[in-house]
């Protein structure tokens, strides 16, 4: 009996801790691909989302005399492209053809993604850059 009791208490305790752990996951952002965002049934999120894709070569335009930058992001699988509007300091490692993550909101009316955060995924960031040779 006491073992059963102990088990029940342990389970309850684990449940409470588990709840706390999972409830914290509200502070997460979902990853989407460009193709999914462009799909007809996409529901705009109130929270921000993350988009991954590759910067299309030749698509980067910087407005003169400002830090506003537009570029096209290509879906790695479908090849769909989406215009990304970004304002802010561009990370040093940002380059065309690089794999990047943008975080922000999608505006279906303008078919444009407004990014507040731009991360450059460079898996070999601290390793040598083999691609550049």
């Amino acid at each position: 009996m006491s073992q059963l009791k102990f088990l029940a208490i342990a389970l309850l305790f684990i449940g409470v801790v588990g709840y706390l752990l999972f409830s914290g996951l509200q502070e997460t952002v979902y990853y989407y691909t460009v193709g999914e965002v462009l799909a007809a049934d996409f529901q705009p999120h109130s929270r921000g989302i993350r988009l991954t894709g590759t910067v299309v070569a030749g698509s980067v335009t910087r407005q003169p005399d400002s830090l506003v930058m537009d570029f096209l992001l290509a879906d790695d699988q479908t090849g769909d492209t989406l215009k990304i509007h970004y304002q802010g300091v561009v990370p040093d490692s940002f380059k065309e053809d690089r794999h990047v993550v943008v975080e922000g909101t999608f505006h279906p009316d303008r078919r444009q993604f407004e990014a507040g955060n731009l991360l450059v995924k460079c898996p070999s960031k601290y390793e040598e850059e083999k691609a550049s040779t």
């Binding site: 914290g24 996951l25 997460t28 952002v29 979902y30 990853y31 993350r50």
Partner: peptide, 18 residues
């Protein structure tokens, strides 16, 4: 359903909250 369909990232807000 969506939760299990999507990759996700834990944002710094999670840690800052705790």
């Amino acid at each position: 359903h969506e939760f299990f369909q999507r990759k996700l990232a834990v944002s710094p807000a999670f840690f800052n909250k705790w």
